[in-house]
Amino acid sequence: MARAALRRRLSWLSAPVLEIHRETARTSRIVLDPPAWPGHQPGQHLDVRLTAPDGYTAQRSYSIASAPEAPYVELIVDCLPDGEVSPHLTQELRPGDDLEIRGPFGGWFVWHAGLGGPLQLVGGGSGVVPFLAMLDHHRAAGSDVPVRLLYSARSLAEVIRREGLAELDGKVQVDLALTREAPPGWTGVTGRIDRAVLSRLTYPPEAEPQVFVCGPTGFVDAVASAMIGLGHPSKKIKTERFGATGGT
């Protein structure tokens, strides 16, 4: 391959930051307006690169939170105090700054209305982010596919886009599981999502759902193996575990 052609494929875009909002105590929503954005599918991610004045670079992948139908590209970033990239994104980045990105990427962990259902989503913490893109797309496309989301968060205050999830229509059922702290009178699930919870609050294998699981590695491991234990074929379960990529 010619060097110039190879270089083009490496291209990073400079995306202006339009807005940054505090989503929860730990997460921020970053609204980007990348030039000549080719469009994306719900569930895809993009890579973000930060470059220090001395040339040191750090790179991470983030799921896209917005639907393809949205006017801008949005990320929801969980601030990890020991992180190399997320503190910058959530605390130092300002509207008007540029963010270096490339993408969108991922032909695997994607769902769009044409792929049918039923659709079973299981998210832990900010693992719900790619599912927000899927749910918004589901609504924008007027899809009739039945959807269930089982979403595990530490507390109600840490539920990302809590009000938006409550407003979803009858085709989408959302169940929350709170692992650390539940408010008085909470009737939903408390504690970690285990096989019994999955059996009660997700589609059974007979419904032949497409299952997507996203979250921290331990969460995804536990949920995916429990779903296989319940009888879902592994090829119907798509997983996405968190973490740093690149590290250059």
């Binding site: 494929r9 991610h45 991922g106 032909g107 695997w108 921290p216 590695t217 575990r241």
Partner: peptide, 17 residues
């Protein structure tokens, strides 16, 4: 174990090539 990710996270890097 916690460092382990899914192969889909390698997509951006392999798109270079």
């Amino acid at each position: 174990a916690e460092r382990r990710l899914d192969g889909n996270a390698v997509t951006g890097a392999l798109a270079e090539l």
